[in-house]
């Protein structure tokens, strides 16, 4: 599985959506229920999957699909 596929699977499982829903509009404002529980599940799943330790500031930025993509680049995870 590619890194992008791994990331998409995490999103689909946490938000209970199809992969086709994941685009630049997939963010905290548009997705109902993007609360702290989901945000932390997302960041924890990403940490486990890619074996990284996110900074607190980055966890606070886990507020959109695009942001997560961008943050992963910072940790040298190529998507």
């Amino acid at each position: 599985m590619t890194n992008l596929e791994k990331l998409n699977r995490i999103f689909c499982e946490v938000f209970n959506v199809e992969e086709s829903a994941l685009d630049s509009g997939f963010d905290k404002c548009n997705i109902e229920g993007w609360d702290s529980v989901r945000q932390l599940s997302l960041s924890t799943a990403v940490e486990d999957e890619f074996d990284i330790m996110l900074d607190a500031e980055d966890i606070l930025e886990f507020t959109s699909y695009d942001n997560v993509n961008r943050i992963l680049a910072k940790y040298e995870i190529e998507l």
Binding site: D35, S36, Q39, L40, I59, L60, E61, F62
Partner: peptide, 8 residues
């Protein structure tokens, strides 16, 4: 949310 920058 505690995961909101505005909260801090």
């Amino acid at each position: 949310s505690l995961l909101d920058k505005g909260f801090w």
